[in-house]
């Protein structure tokens, strides 16, 4: 819901609709119809809502200073508008060298501003896409930083990738996006990602693996997908080696490799020989007590023996 100043209207107008990010000071174009709401009075129900670049000096200043463009704050926005008026966007895009006419703006600052402006434009386009599918600004920026300009394509192909690739985006966000892209809730694509997610949630509680029946129940509840589809998804994920079945448990592959790896590596290290040969503890003990000025207790003396003499294993 937006409160909008409309030319020719004395009071602020309430516009209801869904849009990408809208910041105070931006100008919008809305297509739709006026309705009389029983509770809230006259409103404009927008079927389409679009942010357009502001036209007035005041609007431009607010837009530039809203924090959308890194390096430009409210103060500098005023300086820019005072200098270039309504042509300020053109200056930044087409003749950025003119920025250097302003006091305190050198080559470096100018480059910063043009870079930030360009980034803002690409980010904006991606945000419009992501936000029209319910993903918020901060996450949209992160998605852009990861996939770059291919973000829209990457995300629409398989939104569940986001959960694997982007920190701060979990299965839930990816899932919301998938719903709005029209991927069916009981599709195998969703079930496969969801099974991994259920195991991930489980491992966040400290577990390295899950019993198969427990995973089936959990995933089925969590995803609201019938058990047979989950069973199929587990099989597919095992086939794809995203999951490993071992010792009667189901593991996420990286966790399986880690657990198995720990055991194998420790076994390897246990077979090594000590790099320092034999140490005569009966001589080393009194020596170290003099060195440190501390007398070791019997329990510590007893402990030093295996530590210094174990065959490379301490």
């Amino acid at each position: 819901m937006l409160r909008v100043k409309v030319r020719g209207q004395r009071d602020l107008v309430t516009v209801v609709g869904s849009a990408a990010a809208v910041s105070p000071g931006e100008t919008i174009e809305a297509l739709g119809q006026w309705v009389q709401d029983a509770k809230h009075g006259l409103q404009f129900r927008a079927e389409r809502l679009q942010v357009i670049l502001p036209g007035t000096r005041e609007g431009i200043e607010k837009y530039l200073g809203s924090g959308l463009v890194r390096g430009i704050g409210p103060h500098f926005a005023r300086t820019l508008v005072n200098a270039f008026g309504e042509a300020v966007f053109e200056v930044i895009e087409q003749s950025p060298e003119r920025l250097e006419e302003l006091p305190g703006i050198g080559r470096k600052r100018r480059a910063q501003i043009t870079a930030a402006w360009a980034e803002q434009q690409v980010v904006r386009e991606i945000m419009v896409f992501l936000q029209s599918h319910g993903v918020g600004t901060a996450r949209a920026v992160r998605i852009y930083k990861t996939y770059g300009e291919a973000a829209i394509l990457t995300v629409s192909e398989n939104p569940y990738r986001l959960a694997l690739d982007i920190w701060g985006i979990g299965f839930k966000t990816a899932d919301t996006l998938a719903q709005s892209l029209g991927i069916p809730r009981d599709s195998l694509l969703r079930a496969c990602a969801g099974v991994r997610h259920a195991l991930q949630v489980w491992s966040e509680q400290g577990h390295c693996a899950s019993e198969p029946e427990a995973l089936l129940t959990q995933a089925s509840q969590l995803l609201e997908i019938p058990a047979p589809i989950i069973e199929q998804a587990i099989e597919d994920e095992v086939q794809a080696e995203h999951l490993i079945r071992d010792q009667g448990l189901l593991y996420l592959t990286p966790l399986y490799r880690a657990e198995q790896g720990c055991a194998v590596q420790l076994q390897r290290l246990l077979q090594g020989t000590p790099p320092w040969g034999q140490i005569d503890v009966s001589r080393a003990l009194p020596w170290v007590e003099i060195q440190t000025g501390l007398t070791l207790a019997p329990s510590q003396r007893a402990a030093l023996r295996p530590c210094s003499q174990a065959r490379s294993r301490c």
């Binding site: 509680q205 577990h207 390295c208 071992d246 010792q247 198995q260 055991a263 420790l266 076994q267």
Partner: peptide
């Protein structure tokens, strides 16, 4: 919270 691991058994 018992944690499910098989590291001890593997070792």
């Amino acid at each position: 919270t018992r944690r499910i691991t098989r590291l001890a058994e593997r070792l």
